Simulated assay, not measured.
Amino acid sequence: MTDTPSWVPDGVNTEQPSAARVYDYLLGGGHNFAGDRALADNLVKVVPARDMARLNRAFLRRAVVFLVESGVKQFIDLGSGIPTVGNVHEIAQQADPSCKVVYVDYEPVAVAHSELILEGNDNATIIQADMTQPDAVMNDPKTKRLINFDEPVGLLMVGVVQFVPDEADPWAVADRYREVLPDGSYFALSAFTSDNAPEGMKKAVEVFAKSQDPIFPRTHEEIQRMFGDFELVEPGLVYTPEWRPERADEVGDDAKKSNLYAGVAQKR
């Protein structure tokens, strides 16, 4: 009989890998199980998954800092995952303690650990919800408590839209979120692509097929469509390390190996 850690919510299938827990493992976190680690280890055999995770997390930090510097003080982080070092509320509230953050995830471990991390923080909360249901997210009492839709909002969809299949129409999902954001809001997004390494990403799709979160990498054009009529800020939709690097060495020898496109756009 295997002892289940105390932080695991009832009903969680610890044997079936989840994207949130795989990402946690790739970032060096401790809230994952043997199946998650095995999947991640298989993933790094076909794509540079650890670098992909690290570079995506770095993009998130730079994007949040940019938004705070642009006057945004409230954030909705869709598919936020398991909290590891460098969470949105840590980044934003370090820059401005008045910043408010609503995290959204459907994965029970991500939600449970987020609740522990956020205990006592009146300006941040977690909603257990499916991000593909925008109205449910926006109308949740926790969202309404923290987010004022008369002021600019920073909507974050970072490293998550590749888990939404075409039949769930991620473009319509993004359209609905963008529609309800007030003028002056920003939308930050990053997503898996096969443009750089089609064979490697094809194998990554096969690896993730064994998890509860299959992946659907997309082209530059398909990802850019998610921004709709929002205006992309410079440098546009680029590979994650190319988005406003703070040092030249952050880009590395081959930015394409990040295998995620990233961009930030504003509603005017």
Rank of each mutant, 00 (worst) to 15 (best):
T2P: 13
P9T: 02
G11V: 04
G11M: 02
N13F: 10
N13C: 13
Q16L: 15
P17H: 00
S18F: 00
R21A: 06
Y23R: 07
D24E: 12
L26Q: 07
L26D: 02
G30L: 09
N32R: 02
G35P: 00
A40I: 08
A40W: 12
N42F: 01
K45V: 10
K45Y: 01
P48H: 03
P48K: 02
D51C: 05
D51E: 09
M52R: 00
M52Q: 06
M52S: 02
L55C: 04
R57D: 05
A63P: 01
A63M: 05
V65M: 15
V65F: 08
V65T: 13
V68K: 03
E69I: 14
E69H: 09
K73F: 00
F75V: 10
L78M: 08
G81K: 08
V85K: 10
V85T: 15
N87I: 06
H89F: 06
A95K: 09
A95M: 11
S98M: 06
C99L: 03
V101W: 07
Y103V: 09
D105V: 15
E107T: 05
V109N: 06
A112T: 08
E115Y: 01
E115F: 00
L116I: 13
L116M: 15
G120R: 13
N123S: 14
A124V: 01
T125E: 05
I126N: 03
I126G: 02
A129E: 12
T132F: 11
P134E: 04
A136F: 03
A136M: 10
N139Q: 14
N139D: 11
D140C: 01
D140S: 13
P141Y: 05
K142L: 13
E151L: 14
L156W: 02
M157K: 00
V160I: 08
V164P: 07
E167L: 10
A168T: 04
A168C: 06
P170H: 05
V173P: 10
R176E: 13
Y177G: 04
S185Y: 05
Y186N: 04
S190V: 01
S190T: 11
S190R: 03
S190W: 06
A191S: 09
F192Y: 07
D195C: 06
N196E: 13
P198N: 12
E199G: 06
G200A: 13
K202E: 15
V205Y: 15
E206Y: 12
E206D: 02
F208C: 02
A209T: 02
S211I: 00
D213W: 04
D213F: 02
I215R: 12
F216Y: 14
P217S: 04
P217R: 11
R218E: 01
R218Y: 00
E221T: 12
E222C: 05
I223E: 07
Q224Y: 08
R225F: 00
R225Q: 08
R225S: 00
G228I: 01
F230D: 05
L232I: 14
E234M: 15
E234D: 15
G236R: 15
L237I: 05
V238T: 14
Y239F: 13
T240L: 03
T240F: 00
E242D: 12
E242T: 06
W243E: 04
P245M: 03
P245F: 03
P245W: 01
A248C: 04
E250W: 05
D253P: 04
D254Q: 13
K256S: 15
L260I: 12
Y261H: 07
Y261W: 09
A262P: 07
V264H: 00
K267V: 09
R268I: 11
